[in-house]
Write a protein that binds this DNA or RNA. Structure first.
Lengths: 235, 235
DNA sequence: GGTTGTCGGTGCGCTAACACACATATAGTG
DNA sequence: CACTATATGTGTGTTAGCGCACCGACAACC
């Protein structure tokens, strides 16, 4: 891919654009930094920007009326946050929260929509990414139904690891529990077992992945299904 | 909507097209009938057609390696089966099964893709529908995580009812269990309670919805979230 | 350098859903 | 009409995960 000579600024989706399309978008991309826990958009709320994470990871959460929550998907440097802006609905009934602090590139909604309407590689990429995200969401549904907390924790750790450059995750068990939609104690239990088996170690909000291979053995098939789809659709 | 004077053949998505766009598609739409349990496409398999159900209901299921399964979404006369054909991925890692026997309109993949590429109302509608389907899938994830089998059975019954013209569902508890990803006995138990409360009655594969309002009281918020999004996006 | 808040560990009782085994009833078929 | 498939009901024991309560340990901050 000699087209990938341009500087993609760390977002792998943008890096797949042909050089000319990327250059025409570049002036409209602004850097932005996100802190852990920051709410990027609220359920049903209008978004002024679409975000292409570079080092940040963003969780898509549904907030129940009774206050509990569950993650339906996650986006990092492989994708974007704000599919509703080009899919035509403008809003979605969930919240986007920063799961791992870091940076992103933002683009005004209007610019995005104009570029999308041109129908070039940009549109094709965004749609393929959306399909990958759908696979992630639907596989999350399956996983929530059929698999144990421990398996799901492995999946979550691997999904996060794939979107970072480091084996060190800054994340308390309490927050992981909110993402997975389980009790904090459930995460403590599962994480304890993974630590016993030497797959991870953790202290006070810092999780270290020691044995990625081991995690891949402990995880359910859901992880691989989703990963393979991302690789296939965004190759 | 004076544009809806044309005969939409029972699919509500197609019915939303302007008359001229619909007329240009019409020659490419062929009737097809589906029997209960028929597999429309297999996980990872190529589809030659996109389907617009008129009276049939189609379930999207993930089949686990160990043989168990879970539903990730459902499509009826409000939508279509085969989003991957215009999203660019061509295949998806799940199976589509006929959940309620009936008819659909089919269109060749090539025609679909050409029409989609034109970017008119047809494209806009398909993308909005896809967003609605995403909401359904992600809400299924949440529901699988946080709600009881009885609540999910209510949701499932209401989703089915909304896609039919009748209060009579032809569906065994065994099949419902496969869809929901729970044991058959679990469905028996939940259905028994709904019957005790006078919400439904059933005998050997025939479920009768007696009190739709009552079901809406018994169901979790997930049903309404999804229904509202469908209404909003496909108004 | 003590206080306070955050993070993780643990124990106990409870419930929803599981797995398995088997009983019963009905519809359809020869 | 008898037979057999299929559909549903039920019982027993097990388990994963929940809710709650509380503890200890570390960290940050006056």
């Amino acid at each position: 891919m000699s087209q990938r000579l341009h500087e993609p600024d760390g977002n792998r989706l943008l890096a797949m654009l042909p050089r000319d399309e990327y250059e025409s978008l570049r002036p409209h991309l602004k850097h932005v930094s996100f802190a852990l826990g920051e709410v990027i958009y609220e359920s049903g709320g209008q978004q002024s920007y679409i975000y292409f994470p570079t080092t940040a990871i963003i969780s898509l959460l549904y907030m129940m009326e009774n206050g509990s929550s569950a993650e339906m998907g996650v986006a990092g440097n492989e994708g974007l946050v704000g599919v509703a802006l080009f899919m035509g609905g403008n809003t979605v009934p969930n919240r986007a929260v920063v799961q791992s602090a870091g940076d992103a590139l933002k683009m005004k909604t209007k610019v995005l929509q104009d570029e999308f309407a041109r129908g070039g590689m940009f549109q094709r990429l965004l749609l393929r990414y959306t399909q990958a995200l759908m696979t992630q969401m639907s596989q999350t549904a399956v996983c929530n139904r059929l698999h144990t907390v421990e398996q799901q924790l492995c999946r979550w750790l691997l999904l996060s690891r794939d979107r970072l450059n480091t084996d060190e995750l800054v994340m308390t068990q309490e927050l992981i529990a909110n993402m997975l939609g389980v009790r904090r104690e459930g995460v403590t239990h599962a994480a304890g077992r993974l630590q016993e088996n030497g797959l991870i170690s953790y202290v006070r909000g810092h999780i270290h992945i020691l044995d990625r291979r081991g995690l891949e053995t402990a995880v359910c098939e859901c992880y691989r299904v989703v990963k393979d789809e991302y690789d296939r659709l965004l190759a």
